[in-house]
């Protein structure tokens, strides 16, 4: 009598193995895509970021960001740009665009003034 093939003797295990391998390949493909296309891309301002985070991560002076936030003078608030936009009656996209413009301008200045 011939031995049954592996897929007939362990159908559940082989099914789980096939799904696991497919998932693993998907993760690997996404990892490869991230490394080759996204990891080197210039980071952008996002609405979850806080003003101090923007200052620290993008190297923009505090004095440039503060006037956009509509908050009283003093230390930058620990609040997301999303919440700060809502407090001013703006959309998060509008405030993010204003902050991004300042970041881009500061970037341009540092490139022009660079060695």
């Amino acid at each position: 009598m011939t031995e049954a093939p592996a897929w007939q003797r362990h159908p559940v295990l082989l099914g789980v193995l096939a799904v696991t391998l497919a998932l693993g390949l998907l993760f690997l493909a996404h990892f490869g895509w991230m490394v080759t296309t996204r990891l080197g891309a210039e980071p952008r301002v996002e609405d979850w970021m806080t003003p101090r985070h923007v200052v620290h991560a993008f190297g923009v002076p505090e004095a440039v960001i503060a006037p956009l936030l509509g908050t009283p003078p003093g230390p930058l608030p620990f609040a997301s740009l999303r919440d700060l936009a809502a407090a001013q009656g703006k959309t998060p996209e509008a405030l993010v665009a204003e902050v991004q413009a300042q970041v881009d301008m500061a970037d341009g200045l540092s490139v022009e003034g660079g060695p």
């Binding site: 993760f27 690997l28 996404h30 990892f31 991230m34 490394v35 996204r38 990891l39 891309a41 980071p43 996002e46 985070h53 620290h56 991560a57 993008f58």
Partner: peptide, 14 residues
């Protein structure tokens, strides 16, 4: 700090 979303997605995939 500036790249956490990209970094998070890359590390999660790995």
């Amino acid at each position: 700090a500036a790249r956490i979303e990209t970094l998070g997605a890359t590390v999660s995939s790995a």
